[in-house]
């Protein structure tokens, strides 16, 4: 980058954030405007410090849900950064991303998408294809496409994000399970039930392995127990009083990353139900209840 935020601006930023957090926008906004005026007088309009100050003020407007005003400031900041830092700079990508977020908040997904795409291109160029910030950008892009019903593209972006998370942070990173969940929900939207089911099973198997080690004949994840229960239901009916299988150890495992695992349990349960596998569905739903 070669450019760092000056201490004076950092102090002012912290002060503005404090006022904004207290809802004292009537103090925060004039403070920002005064600082902007001072900066422009001493450094001129086209200076990175002015762009940073515009970003601070945009944040205050965003917090007040004044998205149009915020977007106007970010467009100004974007032009300054492109001029002073160059077109392919991470600060330019970040500004483009935040502009896309503001458009997204106003439901303008179509306008937001190209901004998000440009941010992605810059990050890939500067950071390489396998970087967590690239995955973050892919997540935002996927969400914008999802809101436009472009599921083929959503699928591509989430797949790439999963690949990045798995390659640079390992399979246990919570973002892997979260992104796989999002990808599975995109598969469901397209009626790709088999693909979604496979992903849900992957998530639950990983959660199991993390807690109890490799899966084998004795050591099985919850969905295998649920399917066995489904398969043996006729035998149990003959015996009349079959004991309900204990999933005690699984309740513990689910606590590891409960929001994602809980969602996955419910989603796979719903898929089982759709296939008429009611016993398997009940087993997962019971487990989800306990981990809530």
């Amino acid at each position: 980058g070669g450019y760092e935020i000056p201490a004076r601006l950092q102090t002012l930023h912290n002060l503005v954030i404090q006022y904004a957090a207290q809802g004292r926008y009537e103090v925060a906004v004039p403070l920002c405007k005064q600082a902007l005026e001072d900066l422009e007088k001493t450094s001129g309009h086209d200076h990175p410090d002015v762009a940073t100050m515009l970003n601070i003020l945009a944040l205050v407007y965003r917090d007040q849900n004044k998205y149009k005003e915020a977007a106007h400031l970010l467009n100004d900041a974007l032009a300054i950064r492109e001029k002073t830092l160059g077109k392919d700079h991470c600060a330019v990508a970040a500004t483009l991303n935040n502009l896309a977020v503001l458009y997204g908040k106003r439901g303008k997904y179509k306008e937001a998408e190209p901004l998000c795409k440009r941010a992605l291109e810059i990050r890939e160029k500067v950071l390489g294809k396998y970087h967590p910030d690239v995955a973050k950008q892919l997540n935002n892009l996927a969400l914008l496409c999802q809101n436009q019903g472009k599921y083929e593209e959503v699928q591509d972006y989430y797949r790439r994000a999963v690949e990045i998370y798995e390659s640079c942070v390992g399979p246990d990173y919570p973002s892997v399970a979260k992104t796989k969940n999002n990808l599975a929900s995109c598969y469901l939207k397209q009626g790709k039930y088999k693909e979604a089911e496979a992903l849900y099973k992957e998530i639950l198997t990983r959660a199991h392995e993390r807690e109890f080690g490799s899966v084998n004949g004795e050591n099985k994840p919850i969905w295998m127990h649920a399917e066995e229960r489904e398969e043996s239901k006729d035998q149990r009916k003959e015996k009349d009083s079959a004991p309900y299988r204990e999933y005690g150890s699984w309740y513990k495992a689910c606590k590891v990353d409960s929001p994602t695992v809980n969602t996955t349990l419910k989603s796979l349960g719903a898929l089982y139900r759709r296939q008429g596998k009611l016993e398997a569905a009940e087993a997962l739903e019971a487990c989800a209840q306990k981990t809530r």
Binding site: G1, R62, A94, V101, K105, S185
Partner: peptide, 20 residues
């Protein structure tokens, strides 16, 4: 539930715009 999951997904703001 799936809808709930989708609703929870939010576009992520990049805070690094203030640190450059």
């Amino acid at each position: 539930d799936q809808q709930n999951v989708n609703r929870q997904q939010q576009l992520e703001w990049d805070d690094s715009t203030l640190t450059y």
